[in-house]
Design a protein around this nucleic acid. Structure first.
Lengths: 207, 207
DNA sequence: TCGTTGCTTTACCAATTGGTAAAATTTTTG
DNA sequence: CAAAAATTTTACCAATTGGTAAAGCAACGA
């Protein structure tokens, strides 16, 4: 069973692949998959186009690599929901964490949103294999918390959707926000608002 | 001041422009602006490409026409927020209405989301001139309701963002939802969940 | 019925795009 | 250092794309 034709990558390889992926994130998130060009990515990475294609097999592979790496970062905070912790605080912590990510890494969020928007044609497999099982586990956990009376009765799946929607909104619709808020920084108020909303929704009635 | 070189459009014109815009909505919302092609739109409309360009001056004009028509439909339900009605019910009605639109017209929602996602480069003007003033007026209205004690104290702007985010999510992230919910229809539970969440958030404390 | 106008088709085209072949160069290794 | 391997450049190319020119056809008012 010694099938390891995979050599460890050279320093040059790691550096250039990194450069390419960074540039690609910029371009793909700004122009969408269809609007992005290899020339733009190559330019952004400071490489020639054929050189770029020496590291990746094509436009699609760059894109998919980017997305699947991203998906892991994306799932992490959800994984960290601790069954042992206080349910309300765990979920509010998740909201905070998600919002921080959206505010700090809008390009990543946009890339992901753009792919889903177009029907997720290139990552449905990843969604099914990685996101779905995790999602199901966390829904079950939330349901257990509710059954134990530690959480107000909410629909676990749609609660998660609401968290995703409200937090991602600050990244994905950033262009709209900056028009509507006339450029003022939404960070503090966003945090306060989501905290208020979800705390009220989740806190169980203590009679 | 008799400057009216604008003739009323012929029946053929209205029909073909409609055909084109319908096809364009399909293509743009599925492939994004950059990924969409005039050939695909022409094919969808059942016209030749040059024929299509007889009705519109180019790709961009089709797209912008589509978006600005859409923006009006988009603003309508917000306009209808009635200062005379019961605040909580008015806002919950808005949530319901928005959710219905997302569920019924996902392509429209996706088109809009896609444009914002890419920084709204082609409709910032529209946003500033039409959406912003309306948004400001409605924020002020919500604030008045709060001051009158008819609504729990929330941040008006971020409340609106949350409504937009949660309702649009069902259209824009439809591909993700259908993976996570394994195809079951989210309609009923979505309505119930959002009603529960926003009612709780908005109902003022009656002590 | 004729001429004007409006609509459609045919035949193009220049620019861009994703991608390749192979030579030239640099880096690593024995 | 010399050979082998890895990396980069140069020179391409076929397909696609947004768009045009101009001829053909249809409709309609006088």
């Amino acid at each position: 069973m010694t099938d390891q034709p995979v050599k460890k990558p050279s320093r040059i390889q790691t550096r250039n692949r990194r450069l390419i992926l960074d540039a690609a994130l910029d371009v793909f998130s700004r122009d969408g998959y269809g609007g992005a060009t290899l020339d733009a990515i190559a330019k952004g990475a400071g490489l020639s186009k054929p050189n770029l294609l020496y590291y990746f097999d094509g436009k699609k592979e760059i894109y998919v690599t980017l997305l699947s790496q991203l998906l892991e970062t994306w799932l992490d905070p959800l994984i960290e929901l601790d069954p042992e912790g206080d349910p309300v605080e765990e979920l509010l912590g998740y909201v905070r964490h998600k919002l921080d990510i959206s505010l700090d890494l809008p390009a990543e969020s946009k890339l992901f949103a753009g792919e889903i928007l177009q029907g997720a044609p290139r990552i449905t497999t990843h969604l099914k294999d990685e996101l779905k099982p995790l999602f199901d586990r966390k829904c079950a956990l939330i349901q257990r918390w509710i059954d134990a009376g530690q959480l107000a009765p909410v629909d676990p799946a749609h609660l998660i959707f609401s968290i995703w929607a409200t937090t991602q909104h600050y990244a994905d619709f950033g262009a709209q926000l900056s028009v509507l808020l006339a450029g003022q920084d939404p960070t503090k108020r966003a945090h306060a608002h989501l905290e208020q909303m979800f705390r009220q929704l989740l806190t169980p009635e203590t009679e």
